[in-house]
Amino acid sequence: MEQRNLLKIVIAGALGLAFSGTALGHEEVGAAAGLLSGLHHPVSGWDHVLAMIAVGLWGAQLGPPALWVLPVAFPMVMALGGMLGLLGIPIPGVEIGIALSALVLGSMVLTECRPPLWIAGTLVGFFAVFHGHAHGTELPEGSSGLLYSVGFVAATGLLHGVGIAIGLIHRWNGGRQLIRIAGAFVAGSGIYFLWQTVS
């Protein structure tokens, strides 16, 4: 008797689901997908991740005011690149630029290079355009634009935060060496990305 009831329930459930209408809760269709893909994009490739963390590490090595100038400048210039990508305006050698960003920024961390602030800002901003362009062109169809933008700006900023947080060990001698090793790793990865891109 119980098995028959169970069968009735399963059949009724299957029929119900088969004929149910679409429920569109509210207008923000694709909002969650947009936010999640935005959050996911900067962490989906090691080239992006390592370059972002290198920006934070370099900022931590340089100290104030570079410590905050770089993470403030990067998202804004990156968004300019993203705008170009959204509008379909091509930038030559985007992938090469991204690979070079890991190589150059990693080298800066490795050598503890201390250029004037405007040079550091310009260098970081220059590479930010390539990262932004890649984000702008690779947007999945149907995603919410605003939430995608929120997601990927937040993810990028948080990656800088990770770099800065790791960079706090810079005040100890052992920590300084570890950061330089991390810079060497990022630069080495940049060479690998570059080789992959041009081959």
Partner: peptide
């Protein structure tokens, strides 16, 4: 940055 992208 988000506003710039929204302009895009």
């Amino acid at each position: 940055a988000i506003s710039l992208l929204m302009l895009g």
